[in-house]
Amino acid sequence: MSKTGAGRGAQAFTRGLAALAQYVQREQRTVIPRQHTERITVDGQDHDVRLGVWVSNQKSRRDKLNEQQLAQLAELGMDWV
């Protein structure tokens, strides 16, 4: 079974959101350097998320995010949502 583009996008959003939550909890801030990479573990597998780039991309494409995604970002303190 192959993943659709939307499936990969949803997975990437979920990983990015998990990395953002981990970063915010640890650092107690939402300012993320563009070059920052956050390591997260999902289903027993480690993933390196280019968090600074991911946040920048979400911000620039926020008009394409759905209401749930926007709410999840707002919950983590992203004031641009």
Rank of each mutant, 00 (worst) to 15 (best):
M1Q: 14
S2E: 13
T4D: 15
A6C: 06
G7C: 14
G7M: 07
G7E: 15
R8I: 08
A10L: 14
Q11Y: 09
Q11D: 14
A12W: 10
A12Y: 05
F13H: 09
T14P: 01
R15K: 10
L17M: 09
A18V: 09
A18G: 02
A19R: 01
A19F: 01
L20N: 01
Y23K: 02
V24D: 08
E27Y: 11
R29G: 08
T30R: 04
T30H: 13
V31A: 10
V31M: 05
I32C: 09
P33M: 00
P33H: 02
R34H: 05
Q35G: 08
Q35M: 15
H36M: 08
T37W: 00
R39S: 09
I40T: 10
I40S: 07
I40R: 07
I40F: 06
T41Q: 09
T41N: 11
T41W: 04
D43L: 08
D46Y: 00
D48K: 01
V49C: 00
V49N: 00
L51K: 00
L51Q: 00
G52M: 06
G52P: 13
V53Q: 03
S56T: 14
S56L: 08
S56K: 07
N57L: 05
Q58G: 12
K59I: 14
S60C: 09
S60F: 14
S60G: 05
R61Q: 13
R61E: 05
R62D: 05
D63Y: 01
L65G: 12
N66V: 03
N66H: 14
Q68N: 15
Q69G: 14
L70E: 13
A71Q: 14
A71E: 15
Q72E: 12
A74D: 13
A74N: 08
A74F: 15
E75Q: 13
L76S: 03
L76P: 08
D79W: 13
W80L: 04
W80T: 00
V81S: 06
